[in-house]
Structure formats: C-alpha cells, structure tokens
Amino acid sequence: MSPILFIEQVLNGLQSGIMLFLMAAGLTLIFGVMGLINLAHGSLYMVGAFAAAAVAGWTGSFVLALAGALAAAAAAGAVIELLVIRRLYDRDHLDQVLATFALILIFSESTRWLFGSFPLYLDVPAALSGPVRLPGGILYPAYRLLIIAVGLVVAAGLFALIARTRIGIQIRAGEADREMIGALGVDISKLYTLVFALGAALAGLAGALVGAIQSVQVGMGEPVLILAFVVIVIGGIGSIKGALVGALLVGLTDTLGSVLLPIFFSSFLEQSSATAVGSALSSMSIYILMAGVLLFKPTGLFGEA
C-alpha cells in the first residue's frame, strides 16, 4: 500500500470515528446521567437525516438542512422523554429495552408513512463537492474534512459544557447522585429533558452529515447504534472523553482493517479468497478490539466502576 493511500484511509477512519462519536456522545450522556438504555437513539439519527433531506429539498440550503435536523431531533427527543422515557427511570433495564424498542418501530413506520419506502438523497454543497489538496499531494474530499472539523468542534464544545458550565456541573452531579442534587433544589426533570434533547440533537446532526454521503432511508440508524454501543463500552459508560477515544479507535480499526487485511492475506491466498477472509475478519475486528479492552479494563478505557 502506498503512503498516500494509507493516509487517505486514516482520514476515512477519522471521519467514520467522528460520526460514531456524535452518536455515542449522546448515548453515553443519557446512560451515564439517567441510567437509561435507549435503543431508540438510532431512530433519532434517522429523524435528523430525514429532516435534513426534507429541509434541503424545500429550501436548497444545506445550512438550513443542518439546523432543521438539529431542531427536529432535539424536539423529537424532548417529546419522547416527556411522554415515554420519564416513566422508565425507576423501571428495570428490561422494561427500558422493550419500551425503547417499541419506539424504534413507531419511528420507522411513521417515517415510512411520511416519506415513503424509497431512499432520499441529500446533495453535498457545491462549495464542498470537490477535493482539497493536502500536504504531500493528497487529494481528499472537502466534505469529509468538514465532517472531521465539525465533530472536533462539537467534541470541544461538549468538553467545555461538561467541565466549565453550571449545567455541566449539574449533569456531572446528576450522574453521581441524582437524589442529592434534587434535594439541593435542582429540577431533575428539566435536567433530564435537557440532557435527552442534547443527546438526540447530536444523533440528528450525525444523521444529517452522513445523509450527504449515503442514502437516507428507514432503518439507517440501527447499524450505527450497534457500533455506538461498542464505542461506549470501549471508552467507558458516561465518559465523553471515552466516547471520543473509543469512536476514533473503532473508526480506524474498521476502516484500516477492511483495507489492510485483504492485502495481508493476498500474499498467500488467491485474490478472491483473500478479499473474503479479509472482509470477514475486518467486520470482526472492532468486536475483537472491544473484547481486548474489556479483558484488561472491564469498565472501559475511561469508565469508573
């Protein structure tokens, strides 16, 4: 493999990892603060993608499409927290899983009823449709670089929110002892709604950004949700830093594995066999990574017991 191709694949892995971070950050916030297993988080990713495609189709503006995705996903998150999730905090995890799985079905059928069963497409803005020349003569799509930049800015904003604001203090305190902050006068119900809406908005943003490089379709959030759960297990439940590090590890492992493993096996297998074996192992590589991390750090890289 040439150095240029390797660097391109590293950038692809970073872009994939950043998208997973946007999903996993909201998921780990919700689980860390509320103790809630939310299987419907992938549906909020789908809501953001469909909202962005719809707004872009109506207005022709990609910026308005992103704003619409954030607003739609946050609103959907706030509504389901108020109507459904609020009743699940004191229930066991099985009830949470069943209720949020039901929400997946509701969101999927509602989206199919509103938009139909055929995929929608969100165009990359014309200004970002071409490549950017990086040092070393590498040409890389400008839009994918934008995704990486947006993800890093969001990560920095989340770290600042959690570490340096009053809301962040309340979120961290709610994660540690929700009864105590309630006794100190913090409206825990409003805090939970805010956290859930924030997590939903992050998922919606991820869906909107990905919608421009793949088709927008019903059920698109569930495969990403599985990877997001892998990310928070690797990084540590409740840790934003862990979500970022875990997402980058998963993105790089998946992307580089899909390229390097077939090349490795091609040295002693036929091309077709090497491709098949390499693809199979690359699909397993992120779960092997997760098992390896848990073997040495059962709480994840940055999790607490």
Score class of each variant (00 low, 15 high):
residue 2 S to Q: 10
residue 5 L to R: 05
residue 6 F to I: 09
residue 7 I to G: 05
residue 9 Q to R: 10
residue 9 Q to E: 13
residue 9 Q to M: 11
residue 16 S to H: 04
residue 16 S to A: 09
residue 18 I to Q: 03
residue 18 I to A: 11
residue 21 F to D: 13
residue 23 M to I: 15
residue 26 G to I: 01
residue 26 G to Q: 06
residue 27 L to R: 07
residue 31 F to R: 08
residue 31 F to K: 02
residue 34 M to L: 14
residue 42 G to L: 04
residue 43 S to I: 01
residue 48 G to T: 07
residue 49 A to V: 05
residue 54 A to I: 09
residue 55 V to T: 14
residue 57 G to E: 11
residue 60 G to C: 08
residue 62 F to A: 07
residue 64 L to E: 11
residue 66 L to N: 10
residue 68 G to R: 06
residue 69 A to Y: 04
residue 69 A to G: 15
residue 73 A to T: 09
residue 78 A to E: 11
residue 84 V to A: 15
residue 85 I to P: 04
residue 85 I to W: 07
residue 87 R to A: 15
residue 87 R to W: 09
residue 89 Y to P: 12
residue 89 Y to F: 15
residue 90 D to L: 02
residue 91 R to C: 06
residue 91 R to V: 12
residue 93 H to S: 12
residue 93 H to K: 08
residue 94 L to N: 09
residue 95 D to C: 03
residue 100 T to R: 04
residue 101 F to L: 06
residue 101 F to M: 08
residue 102 A to L: 02
residue 103 L to Q: 03
residue 108 S to N: 01
residue 112 R to C: 11
residue 113 W to T: 08
residue 119 P to V: 12
residue 128 L to W: 13
residue 129 S to K: 06
residue 129 S to M: 05
residue 130 G to V: 08
residue 131 P to S: 14
residue 132 V to E: 08
residue 140 Y to E: 10
residue 144 R to F: 00
residue 145 L to W: 00
residue 146 L to H: 04
residue 148 I to C: 01
residue 148 I to W: 02
residue 151 G to Q: 00
residue 156 A to H: 04
residue 156 A to F: 05
residue 161 L to P: 09
residue 163 A to Q: 15
residue 165 T to E: 10
residue 167 I to Y: 03
residue 169 I to Q: 02
residue 172 R to G: 04
residue 177 D to F: 09
residue 177 D to E: 14
residue 181 I to Y: 07
residue 181 I to E: 05
residue 182 G to P: 06
residue 190 K to T: 15
residue 190 K to G: 13
residue 191 L to A: 05
residue 193 T to L: 10
residue 195 V to S: 07
residue 196 F to V: 14
residue 199 G to A: 04
residue 199 G to V: 07
residue 204 G to C: 10
residue 205 L to F: 02
residue 208 A to K: 02
residue 214 Q to E: 15
residue 215 S to M: 14
residue 226 I to A: 12
residue 228 A to I: 07
residue 229 F to D: 10
residue 229 F to S: 08
residue 230 V to P: 02
residue 235 G to E: 01
residue 236 G to C: 05
residue 237 I to Q: 00
residue 239 S to Y: 03
residue 240 I to H: 00
residue 240 I to A: 02
residue 242 G to D: 06
residue 243 A to H: 02
residue 248 L to R: 02
residue 250 V to F: 01
residue 253 T to W: 01
residue 253 T to E: 07
residue 255 T to F: 00
residue 257 G to P: 06
residue 261 L to T: 09
residue 265 F to V: 06
residue 266 S to V: 11
residue 268 F to C: 11
residue 273 S to A: 15
residue 276 A to C: 08
residue 277 V to T: 13
residue 282 S to E: 09
residue 282 S to C: 11
residue 282 S to Q: 13
residue 283 S to G: 14
residue 285 S to I: 11
residue 286 I to P: 04
residue 287 Y to L: 12
residue 287 Y to T: 11
residue 294 L to N: 11
residue 295 L to A: 15
residue 296 F to Y: 13
residue 301 L to D: 05
residue 301 L to H: 04
residue 302 F to P: 04
residue 305 A to Y: 07
